[in-house]
Simulated assay, not measured.
Amino acid sequence: MSEETYTTNLDSCNPSDCASCTANCSSAGGKNQGTIPNVPNPTIKLTLDDDSVLECAVLTTFPVEDFGEYIALVPLNENGKNKDGETYLFRYAEEGDNPVVSNIEREDEYMAAAEAFHDFIANLKSEEELSKEDEK
């Protein structure tokens, strides 16, 4: 991906809501906070170095202490699917109401973002755990 930043309009709640939501809104998992909502993810289109365009689903945004906010994107194939589980991490910011995605250039910054994302994924609840909580 080139070094410029990319912006897009996302037609749903702020993606960072899912990572740190305290509003208990239904699109962020309702009472099941800390889970990836079972709703279609917004997408973003990235222009790569060769000028091709790659559509990605926004998985979540998340903070990284001492570095800032980051976004996890899942690349989609021509059918809108991702079968290999690959995930891309980028810096995330907002300019006005527009999200801005940019490359992570430093290795220490990338490693901190990758560790924070890993922790986020490790703390997600499974569908089975959510069903048990619903029964209570």
Rank of each mutant, 00 (worst) to 15 (best):
D11A: 07
N41F: 08
S16Q: 02
F67W: 12
E78I: 14
D97N: 15
N38V: 10
V100E: 02
E55R: 06
V58A: 04
A19D: 01
E55Y: 02
G80L: 08
P15N: 08
R91I: 04
T47L: 12
E107R: 11
L73I: 08
P99A: 09
I104Y: 01
Y70W: 12
V64E: 06
D49P: 01
D66L: 14
A23L: 12
Y88N: 07
S26W: 10
L89N: 02
N32C: 00
T61Q: 04
G34F: 04
S27A: 13
L59T: 11
E105T: 14
T43N: 05
D51Y: 03
N24W: 13
S16C: 14
L59K: 01
P63Q: 12
C13R: 03
A114T: 04
E94W: 11
K45Y: 05
V39M: 08
S20H: 08
I44A: 09
S16N: 04
V101A: 01
V64C: 03
P63T: 00
R91M: 02
L76A: 12
S102P: 02
D97H: 14
F62L: 06
Y88D: 10
D11C: 05
A28E: 09
L59P: 01
N14W: 05
Y110R: 04
G30W: 12
C18Q: 00
S16R: 05
E94N: 13
A19V: 07
D17A: 13
C13T: 04
D108K: 13
N98T: 15
V64G: 06
Y92D: 00
A114F: 03
T61S: 09
S102A: 13
G96E: 13
P99Q: 00
T7L: 03
D84S: 09
N41Q: 13
G80K: 03
S16A: 15
E65Y: 10
A57M: 10
I36R: 05
D50K: 10
D17S: 13
N38L: 07
N32K: 02
D51H: 14
D51C: 10
E105Y: 11
A57D: 05
G80A: 12
S27H: 09
N14H: 07
G80D: 08
E105Q: 14
Y110G: 08
C18M: 03
L54I: 02
T87C: 14
L46C: 09
C13H: 07
T8H: 10
E86M: 12
C56S: 03
T43C: 02
L46R: 05
I36C: 07
T43K: 00
C18H: 00
A19T: 04
S102D: 10
G68C: 09
Y6V: 04
G30N: 15
